[in-house]
Write a protein that binds this DNA or RNA. Sequence first.
DNA 1: ATAGGTTGTCGAAGCGCTTCGATACCCGCT
DNA 2: AGCGGGTATCGAAGCGCTTCGACAACCTAT
Lengths: 336, 336
Amino acid sequence: MVTLAEVAQHAGVSASTVSYVLSGKRSISAGTRQRVEQSIQELGYHPNAGARALASSRSNIIALMVPLRTDMYVPVMMEIAIAVATTARTHGYDVLLLTGEEGPDAVRRVTGSGLADAMILMDVELDDERLPLLRDTDQPSVLIGLPADTSGLTCVDLDFRATGALCVEHLATLGHREIAVIGEAPAVYERHTGFAERTLDGLRSRARELELRVLHRPCEGGYDAMAATLARIFDERPGTSGFVVQNESAVEPLLALLRQQGRAVPEDVSVIAVCPEQVAMQASVRLTSVAIPAPEMGRRAVEQLVAKLDGRETEEVVLLAPELTVRASTGPLSGG
Amino acid sequence: MVTLAEVAQHAGVSASTVSYVLSGKRSISAGTRQRVEQSIQELGYHPNAGARALASSRSNIIALMVPLRTDMYVPVMMEIAIAVATTARTHGYDVLLLTGEEGPDAVRRVTGSGLADAMILMDVELDDERLPLLRDTDQPSVLIGLPADTSGLTCVDLDFRATGALCVEHLATLGHREIAVIGEAPAVYERHTGFAERTLDGLRSRARELELRVLHRPCEGGYDAMAATLARIFDERPGTSGFVVQNESAVEPLLALLRQQGRAVPEDVSVIAVCPEQVAMQASVRLTSVAIPAPEMGRRAVEQLVAKLDGRETEEVVLLAPELTVRASTGPLSGG
DNA sequence: ATAGGTTGTCGAAGCGCTTCGATACCCGCT
DNA sequence: AGCGGGTATCGAAGCGCTTCGACAACCTAT
C-alpha cells in the first residue's frame, strides 16, 4: 500500500506539500505540482479513506436510507438510488446504502460514528420517527418525500398535489364527469405516506372546482384485487368513465379487465397513470401518464445535500412540477 | 462528539481497556466491563469509523457494485441489493453502493483507498474487464453471476442451466413437443451476460435428450416487440405449444397477445416464466415459474464474503438449485 | 536599502482508535 | 518463602492524513 509519505519522498517534497497538491487548499508552484502528480501516477497512489476521514472529519460519504418494504413501486426506488449514487460521484461522494430496517438507530449510528457526512431518506412518512433526530443533529440531510411538518428540514419530491390536479383537468377537458382513482395498497395509506394522500387531495379539490365526481379506492396490486376493486367501482358508479391509477402493479390488470369487459380504451373509458415513463410506454396500451421523475428526484436530493455541505443556503422544499404526457389511453368521452 | 478517551475517563479506566471491552479481544473483569458499558450508555458513545478504520485497517464496509443499465430486471437487482445490505448488517458490515458506471476504476479506487474491505459485483459479464483486477488484489470479492472463467473467484448464482432443463422437463411431461423461448433483449446476449446463455444451454440440451424442438427468440420488453416476436414464432413453428419466458417485461404482453389471438392458457398453450415469485403471482394468469431467488442470492453472497474475511475457506462456485412451482399457466397438451 | 506583502514549502501536532509489550496482581504449587 | 502461570489492566506507539504556524525567498513601493 502506497502512502502519502512515499509519494512525498519520491517527488522530493514534504508530505504536507503533497496533501496541498491533492486538496488545492494552498497554492503550489507549477513545477512542484507536476512532479507530485507524476509520482502519484507512477506509484499508483490512492489516499487512504480512513486516515483522511480521521484527519479532516469528513468521510465524503452520503448515506442513503431506502425502505425495506417492497409494497411500493420498486423500480422507482432503484432509479432514485442509482441517480443518487451517480450524482454523488460527480461531486466526489460515495454512497452508503442503509435499509429502513434499523430505523432511527441507523440515523444515530451513522451520525455518531462519522461514517457519513450527510444523509438522504426515502419513503418518509408524514410523522416519521426519524425526523426529530434529523432536526437535532447538525448533520445535513435531505428527504425524498414530504412529511407533515417540513420545518427545519430539506425535502425533494414530485408535486403530487399538482399531479392530482393535472390528471383531473385532463379528464375534465375530455368531457369526463365521473372519475375513479385506483390508489396504492391500503397499507400505504395506513402508514401515512404523504404522496398518496397529497395526490388525492389535489385530485379532489380540483375535481370540486370543475364539478367532477371522484371515487377513491385503494388497491393491492395484482389481478384478483383489481378485479374486485373494479367490480365495486362500477357497481357504485356505473357512469365512471375516467380512471386515475397510482399503483404500478394495478395498471396491467386494470387494462386487461377493461378489455375483458368489453370496455374499450380510450373510446369508452380513459385511463391516466401516475408512474415512470417506462411503465407508461410498455403497457399494453400506451398510457397517458404523469411521470414520476425518479432520476431527477435523486439528482436534486444530492444537489441540495452537497449545497448544504458546502455551506450554501438551500430552499426548504423542492417540488418538481408534474408533466402530463398524452398517449393512447385517454380520449374524449363518446356519446355522453 | 464523545471519544474513547472520554469514556475511559468517565469509567475510570484506560483507553485501551475500553477498546478491549468493545472488541472483546482480551479478557476483561465483569466489574470493569460493566462500568465501561455503563459509561458508553450514559455518554452516548459511538466509535469513530474513520479512526477505527485507520488503526485497524478494516473499514467494516462491503462495496456492492450494481449495474447502471436498466435493460434487465430491476426489481431483482433491488431485492438483491436489499438482501445484501440487510445480511451485511447482521455481520457488522455496512454497504457502499457503487454503480457500474466507473467500471474497473471503481475497483481500483475502492481497493486502493481502503474504503471497503471487500466487494460484491452484480451483473458480471462472461469476460468481464473487472475480473483481472479482482484476481490481482487480495481484497476478497464475490460475484453474483458466473463469468466464463471462475478460477480464483468466488461466485454465487442460480443454476440457470438446471433452470432451463427444469422448464423443458415440465413441458415435456405435459406432452408439449415444440417450445419457444422468449429471451432477454438482444443487448443482453450481445453483452455476453452468462445467465441468459446458460439457461438456453440447459434448455437445449435437455430438449435434445427428450426430443423436443426449441426455438429461441430474444425479445425487447413491451407490447410491440412481443407482438412482432410472437408473430414470427407462430409463423415459423405453427405447432408451438409451450413457452418459456425469461424476460419480465415480456410476460404480460405475451399473455395479452395470446388471449387476443384466442389461444387459451393453459388449454391451448402453456407458459413458464423464469422470474421472481411476485411477478409470477401477480400476472393476469398465475404463472408456473422457476423463481429467481434474489434475496437468497444476496444473502449467500454476503455469507461467502464474510467467510473469506474471517479467513475461512469457501467454495468457488455456489449454484442455487432452481425450484419450479406449478401454477395456472401450464397444463397438458390438449388434442395432440 | 528597507519595510511590508506575497508566494511556496516545510515541520510538527494531532485526529480517535487499535494493539503490542510490560506490569502488577493473584492463585496454587512445591 | 518462592516460583511459574494465569488474568486484568495500563502506557505508548503508530495508523495515514490534514492543517496550522513558521519561514525563507522573492517582489514591490517607498
